[in-house]
Design a protein around this nucleic acid. Structure first.
Length: 556
RNA sequence: UGGGGCGUGGCCAAGUGGCAAGGCGCGGGACUUUGGAUCCCGUAUUCGGAGGUUCGAAUCCUCCCGCCCCAACCA
């Protein structure tokens, strides 16, 4: 997290302006998710902006569920959203609301608009209404039901509420302007009939307000001053303002910003839902998902996500943020905080020929070189170890600093060893590496000798078995949204499960969701749902920067 | 062809008439018991384009080009 003063942005500037001109005397914002899916990194930015503005200006931010469409919403999503907002580090205090809290008030206001001659009950079917709406370039036509009397509209609307009509047979519409260039103003629907059970209001209602009719009025009721939303609602602002003006009630200011897009993933709830429903991922919390639940399970910290949200900035320009920036943010956070451990993902036996059979030493290892307070730990060392298969090559490629026949390498915190030979299997594959150690190099001290490479290891008889899941981008292309069928660009290697891993004994009993840096490899966290005391499961959050991999890749 | 937005390096983004911040990425180097971290250095003679105003323009004016959003009884 940077300590530098946060740069301003147009939203902040607008809020400051409104305070200075006394347009509003305080700041009240709201984060208004619809409970029809899980929150993702894009929502994290909105949450940061909404709660951030409230905090910065000494105001408050409400959490309000925009629950106006019972067909798509559920309690599972409500619970998940609250859990994720809290996890991210924000607190709405007593200010938890639901658009459904206001259904009665909304109904009364609708009656008021009818009485003002500004709303009417329409009998057009959905298809007819679409025809009457016109197109982007041609004006719409007025509905034949547009001029019903106030009395008739009042009666019809009341009967709609009482369930006398079938789903879709009637709507209540605002009477604005069928020839407006802004299609949102062509007599927008305010209510539709839906005989569906709502997760909060049950069967109390069979008519439900549309977003535009519910949102602004909900903001007004709550005394919201700044209703911050994404760009696609910019066209709705004239309607937002129109309703508030007709009703002559408290009028918040709507401000729009460009939604966040991340490379190598998709962000629309619809597409994320598809991935879940088609089983392309294990669920909304699959570690490859850009959801907060997924990022949490992957090992991301709320601090890293908040830092990312601050760094990307707030503008109105279409954008595609590089996922590398998100990864940089976790690395930076975890580098400072994560305890170091040694873990061998793809084990290769290493036998130290001149090390006594039964001997075991407890060597000191630093827990976190970035934080002296983290102290040290003991790591058992013995004659037979496991090292990483990648750390032995025969013949060694140019600039390879690790083990190869005749080469010397340092075993982290242990000894300098020299490779004396290998044992091969029937297929010619290396099954064991032999070496000798220099007793005088205990602790890894090369005593002036140049030992360029240092590799990690675990003692074969002391190590704890573990499963490790290596994650990579869900999609192999930067902009999966631009592809016809996203399934064609799914990254086939987005998940690689390693089962024969060996981790140092201090990791036994590691708590679910605890995070570590496996030295030389990356940041890993204990999987929440799947890890067991008897069967540890680690998820790779992100790899360490790997300049050797770049060198090798460049050569290929 | 209607309405609303937006165009600054590979990706973001400051800048609002005075001579192109910063981050990520990338390239190079130093250091290193993580090929990690850290630290240096480099990375836009130019701000979508063309005219114009001005001593001076990414910033003002004109025209042009490109991109995004809107035609759910979704949000």
């Amino acid at each position: 997290m940077s300590d530098a003063p946060k740069p301003s942005n147009f939203i902040r500037d607008a809020v400051i302006e409104d305070l200075q001109t006394r347009r509003f005397k305080g700041v009240v914002t709201r984060f208004p998710p619809e409970p029809n899916g899980y929150l993702h990194i894009g929502h994290a930015q909105a949450i940061s902006i909404d709660f951030g503005a409230a905090r910065e200006f000494g105001g408050r931010c409400h959490l309000r569920f925009d629950d106006t469409n019972p067909a798509k919403e559920s309690q599972e999503y409500v619970d998940a959203i609250m859990r994720d907002v809290r996890w991210l580090g924000f607190d709405w205090g007593e200010h938890l609301y639901h658009a459904s809290d206001y259904f009665e008030q909304l109904y009364e206001w609708a009656v008021q608009l009818i009485k003002m001659g500004k709303a009417y009950v329409d009998d057009l079917t959905a298809d007819q209404m679409s025809e009457y709406r016109g197109t982007l370039t041609e004006p719409g036509r007025e509905s034949p039901y547009r001029n019903r009397s106030v009395a008739e509209n009042l009666g019809l609307f009341e009967r709609m509420r009482h369930g006398e009509f079938e789903d879709g047979s009637k709507t209540l519409r605002a009477k604005i302007d069928m020839s407006s260039g802004n299609i949102n103003l062509r007599d927008p629907v305010m209510y539709r009939i839906r005989k569906a059970t709502h997760q909060r209001t049950g069967d109390t209602w069979c008519i439900y307000p549309m977003y535009d009719w519910a949102h602004g009025q909900s903001d007004s009721i709550e005394g919201v001053t700044h209703s911050i939303c994404t760009l696609e609602y910019e066209d709705h602002r004239p309607l937002y303002d129109w309703y508030l003006e007709q009703l002559a009630i408290h009028h918040p200011r709507q401000i729009e910003f460009a939604r966040l897009n991340l490379s190598h993933t998709v962000m629309s709830k619809r597409k994320l839902l598809t991935l879940v429903e088609e089983g392309l991922v294990s669920g909304w919390d699959d570690p490859r998902m850009p959801t907060l639940a997924g990022l949490r399970r992957r090992g991301y910290t709320p601090e890293a996500i908040r830092d990312f949200c601050e760094r990307v900035g707030v503008t109105k320009a279409a954008n595609l943020r590089d996922i590398a920036l998100l990864e940089h943010c976790v690395r930076e956070d975890l580098n400072r905080r994560a305890l170091r451990r040694m873990a061998v993902l793809r084990p290769l036996r290493l036998v130290i020929e001149n090390y006594p059979e039964e001997r075991v030493e407890e060597l000191d290892a630093v827990n976190n070189p970035e934080d002296a307070r983290a102290g040290t730990r003991k790591v058992p060392f013995s004659r037979v170890l496991y090292i990483e298969q990648d750390d032995f090559r025969d013949p060694p490629p140019p600039k390879y600093f690790r083990l190869s026949p005749g080469a010397e390498v340092r075993l982290r915190y242990a000894y300098v060893v020299k490779c004396t030979g290998v044992v091969k299997g029937l297929g010619g594959e290396v099954t064991e590496v032999r070496c000798t150690y220099d007793p005088a190099s205990r602790g890894g001290d090369s005593r002036g000798r140049k030992v360029k490479g240092t590799i990690h290891w675990v003692s074969a008889s002391h190590a704890v078995p573990a499963e490790v899941r290596l994650y990579d981008n869900l999609f192999s292309v930067p902009k999966p949204d631009e592809v016809e069928d996203v399934k064609t660009v799914l990254n086939p290697r987005s998940l690689e499960t390693l089962t024969g891993c060996r981790v140092e004994p201090s990791l036994a009993g590691a708590a679910p969701e605890s995070r570590y840096q496996f030295e030389r490899q990356g940041y890993f966290c204990v999987d929440g749902p799947d890890s067991l005391p008897a069967g540890l499961v680690f998820n790779r959050t992100v790899g360490l920067r790997d300049t050797w991999a770049k060198i090798e890749a460049a050569r290929a």
